[in-house]
Each structure stands twice: as structure tokens, then as C-alpha cells.
Simulated scan of single mutants.
Amino acid sequence: MKRRTLLRATGGAVLGGSVGLAGCLDQFSDSESDNTDSHDFPPEYETETFNGQTVPFAPLEDVAEWWEDDEAYFVDTRTQPQYDEAHIEGAVFSPAPDGLESSDPVSDWGTDTRIVTYCVCPIAQAGQRAAVLLDNGYTDVYGLADGFNPWRENGHPVESNDGQASLSTYEIEGETDPADAGEYALAVHPDTGQREASRIDANGGYELSLHFVDVPDSSLLELRTPSYELEGTIEEFSSATVRA
């Protein structure tokens, strides 16, 4: 890599300026408590815990059937540029974790509405938004297990608010302290707020698949794990394994 700035490393010196990510990664952290009193769902559905709330993830085939039969409302939990580029037909924009500060479309829905949240990662942001909805009293909430990309790639209905947008995909592999296992690595494009997250594995490794709109690989990216914060270009981060 030609340049990479270490913004913060746990137990180390600060070598760069403030990244402006305070609290951003925290939205992906699991609580120690596990609320298993979620709604009924098929036992074969996989679940993940977000902030103490158990979230079921419905497989693509079930969610596609719900869409066809008009049996669910859909929530895109990503960022505005990503939503505008393409989203599930009929889905509303209500970003993770808490939705819009005012006039969030979900607030008009009854608490017994079947809701499917989705992102690309494929579960981090969808799970966070679903967990908040369950905490807020909604009783029939699911994440889309496979994420938005398989929906799109399999020809299920999508629509766009920006026909000129250009979508780019970048892959980043990194390593952090194995003690961070189960937490999340987070990549943020600060100029647009676009972000992607990935859970850290038992060995401290993570893989981030970035699906950013109108963001070239020369753009600065902020990368954070519980153990470090880095700033560099997408090209730099995607050219070699990222380590603090």
C-alpha cells in the first residue's frame, strides 16, 4: 500500500485526526442478553442476535413468495445513494438501525404488519433495523437471509430512483484481534455515508464486500474494527490484507 493512516489502535498512540465514526460501529454490537421472546417463525429459519434481540432471517424463496402474494412490506436499511441506485420494488427507505429521524415510512404501519428488512452485507444492517422494530413492538419482522444481491441477480423485481448511478463492487479482506470475534468490521465512505459491515470470525479475520454508488477506488475510506480505525483509499485497502 502506498499510504494508510492509523487513526486509532487500542492501547496505541493516535497517529491521525478524528475519523468521525464515534458510535458508528456500536450499532452493530450484540448485547450480552439474548431476548428470545420474538414472534413465532419456522424453526428452520436461521437467527442472529442484535442488541439482545433475536432476529429470524427468511430465505430468498419464501420472501419472493411473500412479495408475489403481497404478504409483506419491505424495508431497505442501507443508505440513500444505494437505495436510489436500486431497491426491491415497493420497498421503503428506512436506514439501520433506527430509521429516519422524522417521517419514517414504517411509523405508518401497524405493529402486526409483516416486515422484511434487507441490506447487502447480507445481514448486519438488516438485522439491526429488524431488532429495533421488534423492540418497538412490531411482531412479524424478518431479515432477508441472502441479502439484496441474490434478489437482484435472480431476476426478482427491482426499481431505481437514479438511472444514471454507477454501482461499483470492491472486496476487502482484513485481520484484527481474535478477541473481536463476533463483533463487526465496518467500512464507511465519509463523503456519502455509504457503509458496509461484516462479522469478524473466530480467528479475527473479516471480508467486506462494498457495493458503493458513484465511488471510485481512489476515494478515501474509513475502516473500523473494535481494535483499530484506519483511513486509506479503497484501492489500498483492497490490494492486500488489512492489518493495523
Rank of each mutant, 00 (worst) to 15 (best):
V75F: 04
R78E: 01
E71N: 12
Q27Y: 10
A86D: 12
F93V: 03
A64E: 03
C24N: 07
P56M: 03
E65F: 05
T79K: 11
A58L: 02
E61A: 13
Q80K: 15
E61C: 04
A91R: 05
Q80T: 08
D76R: 03
F74C: 03
D98P: 00
D69C: 07
R78L: 13
D69G: 02
Y73F: 12
I88D: 07
V63Y: 06
Q80E: 14
E32T: 12
A58Y: 00
F74W: 09
A58F: 01
Q82G: 02
E68Q: 14
T77E: 01
P56W: 00
G23T: 07
S33M: 11
P42C: 01
W67M: 04
F57K: 02
Q82S: 12
L25R: 14
W67S: 12
T36V: 12
T49L: 10
D40K: 13
V55Q: 00
C24Y: 15
W66Y: 08
Y83M: 02
E48A: 13
S29L: 12
P42L: 05
D70Y: 08
S33G: 05
S31T: 07
D84A: 14
E89Q: 15
D26F: 12
W66C: 04
T79F: 06
T47S: 07
S38N: 09
R78C: 11
D69M: 09
F50N: 01
E68F: 08
P43A: 14
T54G: 01
E32P: 15
T47L: 00
P81E: 01
V92A: 10
F93G: 07
N35R: 11
D40E: 13
S29T: 14
G90P: 02
G90R: 09
A96D: 08
P97G: 03
D69T: 08
T49F: 09
E46C: 04
E32C: 08
E71S: 13
E71M: 11
P59M: 01
G90T: 08
T49H: 14
S94G: 09
H39Y: 07
N51K: 15
E89R: 15
T49A: 07
N51Y: 00
V92R: 05
V75Y: 06
P59L: 03
G52Y: 01
D37Q: 10
T77V: 10
D70A: 11
E89M: 11
H87G: 01
P42F: 02
E65K: 13
F93N: 07
E65P: 01
W66I: 00
S33D: 13
N51Q: 14
D30C: 06
E48L: 14
G52T: 05
L60G: 00
A91Q: 10
E65W: 06
D34N: 11
